[in-house]
Design a protein around this nucleic acid. Structure first.
Lengths: 136, 136
DNA sequence: TGTACTGTAATAAAGTCAATTACAGAATGA
DNA sequence: TCATTCTGTAATTGACTTTATTACAGTACA
């Protein structure tokens, strides 16, 4: 997974955390990230499905955090954008007649689970507020 | 980084570890992974550059481990295939006029380094021999 | 009721990754 | 010596994925 969505989602959430209470438009956010507003709205839609963001339609509408920044763990952000596995999906279909090939996906999966656990542990320790606090 | 190269490289190395001493041809390896032999040779070339594999050209040639499987850490494999960052490269060029945008790549990089450190710690604890030992 | 937003679908453009083709060079052994 | 069987590598194609763009309906506001 080279997931370009994680940095985008984190950027969106950081902007909202830094101007808590205000409604930010997708155009404004897109201007900060320097990407297309429609992609921002898609990511917001996804983050909203995970309960991290609330939106208001219509004039003077926009989006804001659904809960305080110190209640949002970066692991939640990871879960929201994560679909593929971390070190690369073995979409490969190894040769079932090879004693190594027929077993390797099982053992790769175990390895990935182990590693992803370590990663989530780190992300769980940091809240969005912690992340924002690093900015001056 | 959805790096499909990590599983491929690990598959190659596992095959070599399981038949230590023998020279394996790229065709044979490609048959086990079920991918193109040229891609195998590319990965072997890369692993060779990192001192993990030795190759012999010409008829009856092939490749084998450059050192015992218990002397190869999975972190070395990771380093060999790793190019992009873990949670997705911010190829984005955020708006330098935005107080968040102009700093976020720096803080993302720090976060990635932290997480990658945790990941490497796990991979360092497991050798290729440990990985192979799981196979029956 | 016009304006400024969101939400979403559909399409196009760009980028990435793997397969394939091609071929030179190296080692073997008949 | 020379055909064979490998590696090494470049170049091209094709498949797939991601992002940008266009388009437009729906919503809220003033």
């Amino acid at each position: 997974m080279n997931n370009g969505r994680f940095p985008i989602s984190l950027h969106i959430l950081t902007l909202m955390a830094s101007s808590a209470g205000e409604l930010l438009s997708s155009d404004y956010i897109a201007g900060s990230i320097n990407i297309n507003p429609v992609l921002v709205r898609k990511e917001i839609s996804n983050l909203r499905n995970f309960g991290l963001i609330e939106s208001k339609e219509g004039k003077n509408g926009g989006s804001t955090l659904a809960k305080p920044a110190d209640k949002i763990r970066l692991s939640e952000v990871y879960h929201a954008v994560q679909q593929a596995s971390l070190l690369g999906n073995s979409k490969n279909k190894p040769n079932p007649d090879c004693p190594i090939g027929k077993q390797i996906n099982l053992h790769l999966d175990h390895l990935y689970e182990d590693i992803e656990g370590a990663l989530l542990h780190r992300l769980e320790k940091m809240s969005l507020a912690d992340f924002l606090r690093q900015f001056q």
